[in-house]
């Protein structure tokens, strides 16, 4: 699974952190999301997909590979 966060789009809503706290966090200085891991295991794929669905700014792209 390949995850991309479009930082310019992110509005710091924190939805991704709530959906997949193992994978996403927010920067202290402006709340913009960043990845805690590049390649989450399959047990996390469902919550990463939910994070992408819930992102209000549609800033998370997920590609299976």
């Amino acid at each position: 699974m390949k995850i991309h966060i479009d930082e310019a789009k992110c509005v710091g809503g924190g939805q991704c952190v709530v959906a997949a706290p193992e994978v996403f966090d927010q920067r202290d200085e402006d709340g913009v999301a960043f990845l805690l891991m590049e390649n989450p295991g399959s047990e996390l794929h469902a919550s990463v997909q939910e994070a992408a669905l819930l992102c209000p700014a549609v800033a998370i792209a997920v590609a299976e590979r």
Partner: peptide, 21 residues
């Protein structure tokens, strides 16, 4: 837009992050 909306929002967003809350 980026100047009138996104930048000022980010000034506040850090105070309302999921982990801070």
């Amino acid at each position: 837009g980026p100047v009138e909306h996104d930048e000022p929002r980010r000034v506040l967003a850090r105070d309302f992050t999921a982990k801070r809350m």
